[in-house]
């Protein structure tokens, strides 16, 4: 019996690359800060998927890739918390959250 298609490293790398490209696209053209934050989450998910895929196919004896995926999740959570706090402050000050018009953050 042939190996099933999900035992193929390239498919997972392709999905991670697709997420990276989508994240770059959204980060560049979104107007609001929340849209940019969502795009950054996509990029971080692609990175985590690549870590797990390389751990599965390149070195199946240890669990370093899985541990670093958990670290990536923690970093993403901390980043989302701080970024959303800043976004709400920016909204209270400027009454909008468009990235283009925010030129100064402090008096």
């Amino acid at each position: 019996m042939a190996t099933p298609i999900y035992n193929n490293l390239y498919l997972f790398l392709f999905v991670g690359l697709f997420l990276l490209a989508c994240g770059i696209l959204g980060l560049l053209y979104r107007r609001t800060l929340i849209g940019m934050l969502i795009s950054i989450e996509l990029v971080m998910n692609g990175a985590g998927l690549n870590f797990v895929a390389f751990n599965r196919f390149a070195s199946p004896d240890n669990a370093y890739g899985l541990a670093f995926t958990i670290f990536i999740m923690g970093i993403a959570a901390a980043e989302a918390a701080i970024a959303l706090g800043i976004i709400i402050l920016i909204f209270k000050r400027y009454r909008h959250i468009e990235g283009r018009d925010i030129k100064e953050m402090k008096d």
Binding site: I34, I88, F91
Partner: peptide, 11 residues
């Protein structure tokens, strides 16, 4: 859920 809160709190 954090993102949903931010969307609803920002206008």
């Amino acid at each position: 859920i954090l993102i949903a809160f931010a969307i609803m709190l920002s206008g």
